[in-house]
Simulated assay, not measured.
Amino acid sequence: MILIVNKRLLSGRFKGISLWPFVILQDKRLKKDEFFLNHEKIHLRQQLELLVLFFYVWYAIEFFVRYIDCRDGMLAYRNISFEREAYRREHDLSYLKNRPLWAFRKFL
């Protein structure tokens, strides 16, 4: 995981984004936020499992489908299976040690 701090690359809604192998942070203080970093590490693992490119394709398609369903961008984002897994497990700092392969499927 390579951390980059650059608030200009992110919109005001998001504190960070994982773009394998990078995690772009809006604020340098986030480097010390264990739960935030765990959330982003979960995304990095998801990206590796889907060979990076397929992660982004799946993410975009799932966002589009969920947006059509609810017509709310933030709600659609929060309900993407990758995000649901990361948000639900971000406080479990040992989650990645025992996480099964393709665990995000449980959150579809």
Rank of each mutant, 00 (worst) to 15 (best):
G12K: 15
R13N: 13
R13L: 15
R13C: 11
F14D: 11
K15Q: 13
K15H: 13
K15S: 15
I17D: 08
S18N: 07
S18K: 06
L19N: 03
L19K: 14
L19V: 14
W20T: 12
W20H: 14
W20G: 03
P21C: 05
P21Y: 00
P21D: 02
L25N: 07
Q26P: 10
Q26L: 11
D27P: 06
R29I: 08
R29T: 12
L30Y: 06
K31C: 07
K31G: 10
K32D: 12
D33M: 05
D33S: 08
D33A: 10
D33R: 02
D33V: 12
D33P: 11
E34A: 08
F36M: 02
F36P: 09
L37S: 06
L37P: 04
N38Q: 05
N38L: 00
H39C: 00
E40M: 09
E40P: 02
E40S: 06
K41A: 01
K41W: 06
H43Y: 08
H43P: 01
R45S: 06
R45Y: 06
R45G: 06
R45E: 10
Q46G: 10
Q46C: 03
Q47W: 00
E49V: 08
E49A: 03
E49H: 11
E49T: 03
L50V: 01
L50S: 03
L50C: 03
L51I: 14
V52C: 02
V52Y: 03
V52F: 04
L53G: 05
F54N: 10
F54Y: 10
F55C: 05
V57D: 00
V57F: 07
W58V: 06
W58L: 08
Y59G: 04
A60R: 12
I61S: 05
I61P: 00
E62N: 10
E62V: 01
F63K: 04
F63D: 00
F63M: 05
F64Q: 03
V65W: 01
Y67V: 01
Y67D: 00
I68P: 02
I68T: 03
D69V: 12
C70G: 05
R71I: 03
R71Q: 05
D72H: 07
D72E: 08
G73K: 12
M74R: 13
L75N: 08
A76D: 02
Y77C: 03
R78S: 07
N79K: 15
S81R: 13
S81H: 03
F82C: 01
E83G: 09
E83K: 02
E83W: 03
E83H: 12
R84M: 04
R84C: 02
E85L: 04
E85Q: 06
A86Q: 00
A86L: 05
A86T: 04
A86H: 02
Y87P: 04
Y87H: 14
R88T: 09
R88H: 08
R89K: 15
R89C: 07
R89D: 07
R89Y: 09
R89E: 09
R89Q: 10
R89L: 08
E90T: 12
D92Y: 08
S94K: 15
S94A: 13
L96P: 07
L96V: 12
K97F: 14
N98W: 09
R99E: 14
R99S: 13
R99F: 07
R99M: 15
P100H: 10
P100G: 02
P100A: 01
P100N: 01
L101V: 15
L101M: 14
A103N: 12
A103M: 11
F104R: 06
R105H: 09
R105K: 14
K106V: 09
F107S: 08
F107A: 05
F107Y: 15
F107D: 10
